[in-house]
Design a protein around this nucleic acid. Sequence first.
DNA 1: AGCTTGCTTGACGTTAACGTAAGCGGAACG
DNA 2: CGTTCCGCTTACGTTAACGTCAAGCAAGCT
Lengths: 133, 133
Amino acid sequence: MTLEDTLTIREMCDAYQVTPRTLRFYEAKELLFPIRQGQKRLFTKRDRARLKLILRGKRFGFSLEDIRQLLDLYDMGDQQSTQLRRTYELAQQRLAEMERQRDELNEAIGELNEQIEWGAQMLASMDQKTAAA
Amino acid sequence: MTLEDTLTIREMCDAYQVTPRTLRFYEAKELLFPIRQGQKRLFTKRDRARLKLILRGKRFGFSLEDIRQLLDLYDMGDQQSTQLRRTYELAQQRLAEMERQRDELNEAIGELNEQIEWGAQMLASMDQKTAAA
DNA sequence: AGCTTGCTTGACGTTAACGTAAGCGGAACG
DNA sequence: CGTTCCGCTTACGTTAACGTCAAGCAAGCT
């Protein structure tokens, strides 16, 4: 029974496709805070929510350190406004950075497309030769 | 006089905003092939063309090893079309990957914006309180 | 008791793309 | 001739995000 609604390390691994090493690593980096039952880790609902966000962040190309900062934005209930404001600014910086990255990526996609078309034409002409022979 | 139309390592660095270490590194990785005059490297027109492509490739997020393969696409006079086709496919894969990343990034930007608005409203209400006091 | 299985904590290994420092060889300048 | 540049090679250092042992406890099965 999962009375406490917690998962063992292995259950977490199976559920999220990560290794035990990864989960312990994230704990060491203060991204997760599993509780202990004796020696063993038990991952709570909160840990699962955080892990989802961590994995999403990673797909976006954020570093774990960046992610740790963003995670704090989600948890903050009613902190000092100075602290909140600082985090707010941090989020805006990230956003600007992300938009810049997106724009560069779009530009790169355009250029790469040109290159590919170039290569495609070359391939087409070679195919013609091959077909002729 | 640049009779031979070659650049020294420092001229290259200034021209392309890279360090000497980087150029030597690229040579070691067989991305560039400067000729030698005694001990010193001299970078030819071909090296300059390749370096441009290397730097562009890096902006696209290719690894140096990927780039080395792509570079061969440019040099290939009339190689096997199989090889050319492989490289062409590699570029397309990369493009798909980049588009996927861009889409995820856009999604993330949207979500992050929501969070920020949330935080902004909270800040606004706190400012009102502060002003009232 | 003995063995296996699962989890734990170190601690060292790995990859990419360079940075950085040490030490040496010529060339140019005063 | 001494010093200052510039460049060369060799080689160790760096960062991120884990992988991969090593060694050891605790529980459960037989």
